[in-house]
Simulated assay, not measured.
Amino acid sequence: MSILIAVVSLLGTIAIFYTCKVFYQKFKKEWLTPMLITPLVIIFVLLLTGTSYDSYNAGANILTNLLGPATIAFAVPIYKNFSLLKQHAFEIFLSIAIGSAVAIISSFFIALVVGLNDKLVHSLVPRSVTTPIAMDISNMIGGSPTLTAVFVMTTGILGSLLAPIIIRISHFRSPSAKGLMLGMGAHGTGTSKAFEFGELEGTFASLAMVVAALISIVLSTIFFPVFEQFVMNILLP
């Protein structure tokens, strides 16, 4: 029975995602993005059928394990446009480094203001990194990888929903500006959205996501503990 539930969970998740994708491509409404609708439909089905998350995840976990290879696949467009990326190397790395630092620091202060405990604080800090790496960072700094995955997904969905609005309001024209913003602010989900704008936007988003992950590993594991201790010494002398 458990094997049957696992198989149904896996195939059902794929079917729901592609159904949502068809609706999204037909109506082109931001709120119909599969990354938002698919989890909501799955939650509804689990509640309706009384299926536990553990039973569902026994099959669907295969998709989670594919996040790593999927992230690596973003290296293909980076390789194809490597000469273009070299021309903007300084601006790219500087902007991503600043973006990564702001993401970590803002997450930390938001968590303090809301009054989250230490585990939740450390789970929230890596929210602006692609899921597989964010979960590893969370584990290294004392957070909960499962909660971090939720925070990352929420950040990615909100980022991909808000980015087109920000692009229109700010009148962004440069593919690099669109791509770097989406890759840095919404990681994998944002990168997928960037490819809807064009290949160059997707390439810059891919680079932003990968470089942000590498920079965030260093900032989160080396500099963040020192920064956290410094802030806490000021607030709680």
Rank of each mutant, 00 (worst) to 15 (best):
L116K: 06
I215W: 06
T189S: 15
N117A: 01
L120N: 11
G202D: 09
S192I: 15
I78S: 07
V76G: 00
S123L: 00
N61S: 14
E201M: 10
F172M: 15
K28H: 07
N57W: 10
L84C: 13
I157R: 01
I16C: 06
H122L: 02
L67H: 09
I166Q: 02
A73R: 13
T155D: 08
A6D: 11
I167W: 05
F23M: 11
E228L: 03
A177H: 06
V210Q: 08
D54P: 08
N139R: 01
N233W: 08
G159C: 13
T19I: 14
A70H: 13
V125E: 02
I98H: 03
N65T: 12
T33W: 10
V41D: 00
I167H: 08
I104R: 01
I78L: 03
N61Y: 13
F223Y: 04
L84I: 12
T13Y: 14
V114K: 06
I222A: 05
I157W: 09
V218H: 03
L10P: 01
I167T: 14
M181R: 06
Y53V: 11
A89C: 07
L219Q: 11
F23S: 05
K26D: 14
L36D: 03
G99V: 04
L10K: 12
F197M: 10
Y24N: 02
N81P: 13
F109I: 12
S55E: 15
L162S: 09
G115R: 04
M181S: 15
A70M: 10
D136H: 04
V121C: 02
D118C: 02
P69K: 13
S176P: 00
S128D: 08
S83P: 03
S192R: 11
M153T: 14
V102L: 04
V129R: 01
F227L: 03
T33I: 09
T51W: 07
S100I: 00
I78V: 00
I217A: 05
Q229C: 07
V113H: 06
E199A: 12
V45T: 11
L84N: 07
I217G: 00
N233L: 08
A212I: 09
I78F: 01
T13S: 09
I167M: 09
V211E: 00
S170H: 11
F17T: 05
I167N: 07
V210Y: 04
A58L: 08
L84E: 14
T71A: 13
L161C: 05
C20L: 12
E228H: 06
L67P: 05
S176Q: 14
S100W: 03
Y79R: 10
G115E: 05
A212W: 03
A205C: 05
Q25G: 12
V226D: 01
G202F: 02
N81S: 13
T148V: 12
F93D: 06
R127K: 15
C20E: 03
V41I: 11
G188L: 14
I169R: 08
I104P: 00
L10Y: 13
P225M: 03
L32N: 01
L47P: 02
G59L: 12
L85D: 09
I234M: 14
A73G: 00
T154I: 13
N57G: 08
P175L: 09
P34L: 08
Q87P: 07
E196G: 04
A194R: 05
L182F: 00
E228S: 04
Q87E: 14
T189L: 14
F23R: 11
F223K: 02
I137V: 08
